[in-house]
Nucleic acid binder design. Sequence first.
DNA 1: TGTATTTTATTTGTCGACAAGAAAAATACA
DNA 2: TGTATTTTTCTTGTCGACAAATAAAATACA
Lengths: 236, 236
Amino acid sequence: MTDIDTDNSPIPERKRGSGVKMVYDLLRDEILDLVLPPGSPIDEVQLAERLKMSRTPIREALVRLAGEGLIDTLPNRSTMVANIDFLNLNPFFDALVLMYRVTTRLAAQNHRPEDLPIIRGFHEDYAAAVQSRDALAMIATNAAFHAAIAEAGRNPYFTSLFRRLLDEGRRILRLYYQSYEEQFPQRFVDEHAEIIAAITARDVEAADRLGKAHAEQIVEQVQKLFARNNKLDIAL
Amino acid sequence: MTDIDTDNSPIPERKRGSGVKMVYDLLRDEILDLVLPPGSPIDEVQLAERLKMSRTPIREALVRLAGEGLIDTLPNRSTMVANIDFLNLNPFFDALVLMYRVTTRLAAQNHRPEDLPIIRGFHEDYAAAVQSRDALAMIATNAAFHAAIAEAGRNPYFTSLFRRLLDEGRRILRLYYQSYEEQFPQRFVDEHAEIIAAITARDVEAADRLGKAHAEQIVEQVQKLFARNNKLDIAL
DNA sequence: TGTATTTTATTTGTCGACAAGAAAAATACA
DNA sequence: TGTATTTTTCTTGTCGACAAATAAAATACA
């Protein structure tokens, strides 16, 4: 391979301060989309020459990702994409269900008029994804829908934890939907509509109940997927 | 002032990799103890020469702290200690109460024998702090006590959020106990004892109930403090 | 041939330096 | 004297380089 520039990039200019964000967003997407599967090593120098920047901004992005639990850093040694503890997902499910509940409830309590169109927008995106049987789009739009509800609840502590859980959920589901072309049923679309109605009506109790039921539905579906997969694993 | 070294430090050697952690721990303590009050500017170069290290490890520590919400970073401009929104502490209180409940409940469910001595240890520390009427020690040991309970609950998602809330609580209380020599009542010690009993007996419902009641007691006490303080503010 | 020790190589943590942005100060102009 | 514009100062974001720590390879030895 000759050493001639294959891409003579005409605009290597980058706005000052955009470096870390660029690396952070890129790595985050690649991790959540499983382009970088759990356990993948992350090489700083390699990234540096790929993105044509120094190691400094890359390191800062890695520190942020480590803070969010998306990568693990071994001192003085390699850093790699965080693993998922498939043997015990209970803590994850527990936290997920509770955050579904509490964010839906708070949205019913605290939402403002301008929040509703945003939520409805994601709701329609999700319905479209179900219609076109696009499993990966379902995962993404479902997460966006519930994140928007959490925002309307206006509790930054819950929102940030919920975001982290939804991210982790994206990884988990993506890992399974890769091998098994499954899909969220139409039922979830209807449940989303009910949730929106409860929030709009400021019916706190209904929102709480629907959020909980919805979350448990999802958890149940995921666990069913797992059970089937585990059987297959054993069979192998 | 002459430029002669006032401290000719004989051991400027520092272990490799300990730099970031040192800065992180130092700043975190100073922020939580209000040595650096909310809004304080943080100067990288100043810190660098104070701790006699380069700006690089300091920046990484700052990125971590920003990730935990303890400092705010304005792009291309100064970074400062995060402010506290005293006008609306409700989101904080909501999250705090819920985490008190859920961690206590999970501790009753999931604790292991080796967790109990640790919890009891912090309980005794707290009792001692109440005995000696040391308000700041009460704040710290109370946080440690509940963090230990959260650890015993074995849900890292809840634990990390709870830790963040307890940290924030330390800042809030410290701000008030500075001006008003208040103290947590003996009642809290008794409640702690009840909580330990419920956890030990693996009585999940009782743990949940006690955790909730305890949390609401604390919130109420803090709100009382605030109300009094606000009256004084208006009077000024 | 298998294990222990030394040597090499790779990767990380830290450093000092430089330039871009923004704020503050200084100057020009009305 | 008050406002607009330029200059200066200060802080941050990024860079390339070097040294410590670890892993891998090579060598010595049984």
